[in-house]
Nucleic acid binder design. Structure first.
Lengths: 242, 242
DNA sequence: CCACGGGCGAGAGCAGTGCTCTTGACGGGA
DNA sequence: TCCCGTCAAGAGCACTGCTCTCGCCCGTGG
C-alpha cells in the first residue's frame, strides 16, 4: 500500500517535473506570453486535457515557473556572495559580486527574469510561495551590510534621514531590531541597493539604454557603485578584476 | 478634391483616435495581455476585420499605445519640472518633483506604465517612434543636472570614476560635449538617477516591497534622495511640503 | 451623364488558444 | 471477484488574431 502509493506519488512528481521542464524550455524560447499548454502537451506526447490533472490552470503552471525562477536567482546570489566571502573579499566586493551574478543570470535567462522582475499585471497577486524565495536576495544584502557595519567599513551617511522609521515591524523583527547609531537609517537606505540592482538590470535588459552606452557591463558596475555610495558602501572601481 | 480628401483623412484620423481610446480604456481595465481586438471592435460597433484597415496588427495598436504612454510620462515630467522651476525651486526640489510626478502617473496608469517600463518581451524591438518620447525624461533630468552644476549646487563626487567614458558619442553630442572638471563623470552617474526612478517606481508598483514599508510615498522620496546623493544632488528631506 | 475605381465595412472562415466534460482503460484494496 | 480511484483521451465550447472575399458608397475621369 505504502510502496504502491509511493510509486504513484513518484510517477506523479516525475511528470510534474517533466511538464515544468518542457514549459521552461518553451518559456525560454518564446516567452511567457506565448507559453501554450497545448504545445507542452504535444512536446510530452500527452493530450492537452491531461495536463489539467497536474496544474489546474495555465497561470498555476506559470506560478510554478515563477517560484523556480525566484529560487534560481536567490541561489545564484547566495553562492556568489559565499564565493566572494571565502575569497576574503570586502563587503563592497561581495555586493558587487552579487550584483554581477544576478545580472549574469538575467541576461542568461531573460524571459525568466522578466517573469519575476518584469510587469506582473498589476491586478495579479503574487502567491505566498513566492515571498520566501524573494527574501533570499534581501537576506544576502542584509548580511553584506551588517558585516560592513560591524567591521566599520560602512561610511556614515552625510545627511541622516529624518522622520519616523519606514519599515514594517515585521521586517524589523526579521533583521533583529533596528540598527544602532550611527546607522539608524540603514534599513531604509538598504532597499535602495535592491531597487538599484533590479532597476538597472531591467533597464539594461529591456533595452532602455540601447545606443546610449559603449559598455553595458562596465557601466553596470559603475551604476552599482554609485548607488552603493548612497548607503555608505564602497564598491571597487576600475576594470573588472574577477 | 483636396477638401474631399481632407474630409476622408479627418474621418480616418477620428476613427483611429476612437480605436486608440477604446483600446486605452480596455488596457486600463484588463491589462495589455488581455487586450482584444474583437472587444475593441464590439465596443465601437464595428466588425473585427474592419480594424485591420487602421492597424495592421494587434501589436501595431499596442505600439501606438506605447508611444502615447511614453509621451504622457514625458509630458508629466516636463510640466512638473517647469512648475517647480517657475516656483523657484532648487535643482534638488525640481528633480524630486519630477520623480513624484512620474510615480504619480505610474500609480494612476499602472497598465500603461507597465507597457513602457515593464517587460517588453525581450525579442521585441521598440519601434523608432518610441525613442523620441523616451528621451524627453532624460532631457528633463539633464536640464536639472546642468543647472545644478552651473550654479555650483552639485556636490563633487568623493570617488571620481576611473576609466574611459561609457556613453556613446551620439549622446555626448546631444548634450553638447563632455562636461568639464570636476564633473567629468556626470554623464555616467546621471543615468543612475533614471534607473533609480523607474526601478523604484516599478519595484513599488509591482508589489515587490509589499508588507515591507509603512509608507510607500515617504520611502519613495527617501529612495530618490539616497540615489541622488550618488550623483551629488541634494534632494530635500523631511515631510512632504508640496 | 455614366461607368470606373478605391476606400470602406461585413461576414465567413482558418488555425490556434484555455478550459470543461464525458468516456473508457488500468490496477490495487476489500 | 468486484469495485473504485486514478489516469489519459477525445470531443466540444467560447474565444482569439488574422485573411479573404464580397458588396456598398462616393468621388473622379471620360
Amino acid at each position: 500500500m505504502t510502496a504502491a502509493q509511493d510509486l504513484r506519488a513518484r510517477a506523479r512528481a516525475d511528470l510534474v517535473a517533466a511538464i515544468k521542464a518542457s514549459a521552461a524550455t518553451q518559456l525560454a524560447s518564446v516567452g511567457a506570453a506565448a507559453l501554450s499548454l497545448r504545445a507542452v502537451a504535444r512536446d510530452l506526447g500527452l493530450a492537452s486535457s491531461a495536463l489539467y490533472r497536474y496544474f489546474p490552470s495555465r497561470d498555476a503552471l506559470l506560478t510554478a515557473l515563477i517560484v523556480d525562477a525566484y529560487d534560481a536567482v536567490g541561489a545564484v546570489a547566495e553562492q556568489a556572495e559565499d564565493a566572494a566571502r571565502t575569497r576574503g573579499g570586502s563587503p563592497g566586493e561581495r555586493w558587487l559580486a552579487v550584483c554581477r551574478a544576478v545580472r549574469g543570470w538575467a541576461v542568461a535567462h531573460p524571459h525568466e527574469y522578466a517573469l519575476v522582475y518584469g510587469s506582473p499585471v498589476p491586478g495579479y497577486a503574487a502567491p505566498a510561495d513566492t515571498v520566501e524565495p524573494a527574501v533570499r536576495l534581501s537576506r544576502v544584502m542584509a548580511r553584506v551590510l551588517l558585516d560592513a557595519a560591524g567591521e566599520g567599513t560602512l561610511r556614515v551617511p552625510a545627511r541622516p534621514l529624518p522622520g519616523p522609521r519606514l519599515v514594517t515591524p515585521a521586517v524589523l523583527e526579521v533583521v533583529g531590531g533596528a540598527p544602532g547609531a550611527p546607522y539608524e537609517d540603514l534599513l531604509e537606505r538598504s532597499f535602495v541597493l535592491l531597487t538599484a540592482l533590479v532597476g538597472t538590470t531591467s533597464y539594461l535588459l529591456f533595452g532602455h539604454l540601447k545606443e546610449v552606452l559603449t559598455d553595458d557591463d562596465a557601466w553596470f558596475d559603475v551604476a552599482m557603485a554609485v548607488a552603493a555610495e548612497g548607503v555608505g558602501l564602497d564598491l571597487p572601481l576600475g576594470p573588472r578584476t574577477v
